[in-house]
Design a protein around this nucleic acid. Structure first.
Lengths: 234, 234
DNA sequence: TTCATCCTGTTACAATTCGTAAGATTTGCG
DNA sequence: CGCAAATCTTACGAATTGTAACAGGATGAA
């Protein structure tokens, strides 16, 4: 999967195929659509999809047996999309090897989210992006290392990384202390405020902030913090 | 996971906990139930659940931030069970790291089926090969030999191999001490912690890690370890 | 058997992390 | 300018982790 992940769509309704293809391509996936199981199976000989969306009610084949084969032989990630809403349908679909079961009518954005959730597991490495660049710095969240523009390395601890990640995920926006406390797992302890201060102080030191004039982590008195810096994840 | 998979249930309604526990235990899982996030987090220090069921509306904590931390830091399989049925809720839940999102009211048998679908994926991660290459090293698990890029050989023991294999099977993911202890057959002895430390220390020496700045085996204080390195099995 | 060697857990102590306490400093507002 | 609240910094200590040294046990050769 060096390029964008490939998602195949097998559904006999053209409207659904286009709806899914549009949403998926906007989300950065490649797509291939099929109306019949036979066409789909033919394509499988040359293409290797990362995810297969399969409608159960196909004109030329029982969808369930296809799912079974796909999951069993290809080891592919299979998501059933079906109008059959009974619990029993879902259970048997999942037991036959499907990874997920989405009921019609569905929202395309949920389909995208569920596909992403599967691929995240598939590629444990860095699907979501574990490296962020900002203002000459590079933060490697998988190796817990902060790199200078000169290449000099500074390790950062887990607690510091939590704070840094929070900032880098919400740059140039105010982050209230309440949100911070929640994200950092502070168990409603009043004195956790001080712990947060200390974390930020230590992070500032590693980022070589001038205490008199912090350029990256600004304090908003009475409100929270704001991280200035042009962040790009990869 | 030598024994039955462990599923944790975090929900403040006792009726739901029992319903799920009954269905799951009948299906052959071990279960642990919690009403509060704090109790659950405390249990995480000693137990290593294979799947975590989390209700979003918790009395003592916002469930979403908990899900985020679980998925991000523990690398755990997380399934949200929630009454919030809006598409947007589901999408954000999945994007924050949840593997699945089940809406109340639900049927226990579907929960079981969805959990099985997740675990089916987990298992095959165990590669069949017994030789792994990573960052210039080659580990031969059948001959208990570690080979350098220059071809120099270093033997490793059985205990060291267990740790190394655990790392190589889950690269770039956090491995909690609880999981390690379970995998390495540690009999819950408190002092087994030290034994694990020693195993890792010896492994680090053989991998010629710089004690001050380990590249491959990183320690996450209070959480566990993470193995960096691009692994390919054969 | 006897001895040497290796493996591995245990112990003891050093090093690191991180929250807490306490005092210093800054900010907002009269 | 003065005061109170908020925030920063430093120091300390509890908890966690690293590692050297030791000891018991297994293995295998003489």
């Amino acid at each position: 999967m060096t390029q964008a992940p490939l998602v195949t769509i097998l559904d006999d309704e053209p409207a659904i195929r286009t709806m899914l293809a549009d949403a998926l391509e906007e989300a950065g996936f490649r797509t291939m659509g099929f109306a019949r199981a036979t066409e789909f199976e033919a394509a499988l000989k040359t293409a290797a999809p990362d995810v297969c969306l399969v409608d159960l009610s196909l004109p030329d084949r029982d969808g369930l047996s296809l799912v079974h084969r796909l999951a069993l032989e290809q080891g592919a990630t299979v998501i059933i999309i079906s109008g059959r809403a009974q619990v029993q349908d879902r259970v048997t679909g999942l037991e036959l090897g499907a990874d997920d079961y989405i009921i019609k009518p569905f929202d395309p954005s949920e389909v995208v989210a569920r596909i992403r959730a599967r691929l995240r597991r598939e590629k444990p490495a860095t699907q979501t992006g574990n490296t962020a660049r900002f203002n000459g710095w590079t933060a490697h969240f998988d190796s817990y290392i902060l790199t200078d523009e000169t290449g000099a390395e500074t390790p950062f601890s887990h607690a510091e990384g939590e704070v840094l990640r929070l900032f880098l995920e919400r740059p140039k926006r105010l982050i209230s202390r309440a949100i911070m406390q929640e994200t950092l797992g502070g168990a409603a302890g009043e004195s956790f405020d001080r712990a947060m201060d200390v974390r930020i102080s230590r992070l500032r030191t590693k980022l070589r902030e001038d205490p008199k004039n912090p350029r990256l982590i600004k304090t908003i008195y009475g409100a929270g913090y704001i991280f200035l810096g042009d962040v790009s994840w990869s």
